[in-house]
Simulated assay, not measured.
Amino acid sequence: MMVNTYSRFTYDTVDEIAPVYSAIVLGTSKKLKNGRENQYYKNRILAAVQLYQANKCKKIIVSGDNRTMGYNEPRDMKSDLILLGVPAEVIVCDYAGRRTLDSIIRFKEIFGQTAGIVVSQQFHNNRAVFIGRHKGIRLNGFNAEDVNVHNGLKTRVRELVSKLFCVLDVKIFNTRPRHLGDKIVI
């Protein structure tokens, strides 16, 4: 699928990736429904810390869902990044990143970024970079460690559908984010 060809813009080690002003970490739930730690989440946070510590970005936007008072991906990500040594003033929360498409378009239109690094697992980064590059963002991906196939099977199946909708959103429908709002200078 054409989205997978964008893997050429994703990297597994920080040494391979050029420094930029800002990175964006794509949200996911901190805990699984059974209460266990979500390895996708944990690995994205660790990758973002690694990126920052390697001086590959000056700012980190944490973008995710916060539909209810008890569920707030950006707040969780910011808190965990701070616990791991990233200064609070470096981290910017995007509370309207309900979908990957929303997060990436908001990265440019709300936060004014025309280049950056997206942090997620490679299968997700391929899609995010596809969206970003079609929207005029020089976006590269930093691949967080993946989870084993058994634990990630449901996500892999869902990703096939997400890629199809991604292509339709970008190439056919020119889908816009659900929420935009005022520009935020970072």
Results as ranks from 00 to 15, higher is better:
L168I: 11
Y6R: 01
Y71L: 10
V149P: 13
R176M: 12
A88V: 09
C93W: 02
P177C: 07
N148H: 11
C57V: 09
N125T: 03
T10Y: 03
S79M: 06
V167E: 14
K108N: 13
V161A: 11
V161S: 08
M77H: 00
Y41E: 04
F123C: 10
M77A: 01
P87L: 05
E37Y: 09
I24P: 01
N4V: 13
N174K: 14
V25W: 05
N38F: 02
Q113F: 05
H124D: 10
N143T: 03
K42A: 04
V167Q: 14
E16M: 08
M1K: 07
L139D: 01
D146A: 11
Y71S: 10
K30H: 10
K78Y: 00
N125K: 04
F173H: 12
T13K: 13
I110Y: 00
S22M: 11
L153T: 12
I172V: 15
K163G: 10
V14N: 01
Y71H: 12
R98V: 12
G64I: 06
S29H: 07
H179Y: 15
N174E: 08
T10I: 05
N151E: 15
D15R: 13
R75C: 00
N151V: 06
A128L: 04
L160R: 14
V157G: 04
A54Y: 00
V90N: 05
N34S: 09
I172Q: 04
V3S: 00
I172D: 03
E16H: 06
F9A: 03
S162R: 07
F130R: 01
D80V: 04
Q122K: 15
V185G: 02
G116Y: 04
R36K: 15
I24S: 02
V147W: 10
R75G: 00
A115D: 13
D15K: 14
S29F: 04
A144I: 01
L168T: 00
F173E: 05
V49S: 05
Q121Y: 05
L164P: 01
V119W: 01
L101Q: 02
Q53T: 10
T28A: 12
C166L: 09
T10M: 08
I17Y: 05
C93V: 10
K33P: 07
L180S: 12
T28N: 09
V3I: 12
G136K: 06
S162N: 13
N43C: 04
N125L: 08
L26Q: 02
S7A: 15
D80L: 06
N43H: 12
A88R: 11
L84S: 08
S63R: 01
P87H: 08
V25Q: 09
R138L: 14
T13E: 12
D80T: 05
L153P: 00
R75A: 09
D182G: 11
R133W: 06
A48C: 06
I186Y: 08
D169H: 11
N148F: 09
A23K: 02
N72S: 03
R36D: 13
V149S: 15
G64M: 08
R158D: 03
Q53G: 03
L101F: 08
K163W: 08
N125Y: 07
D15H: 11
N38R: 05
E145D: 14
R8Y: 02
G112F: 09
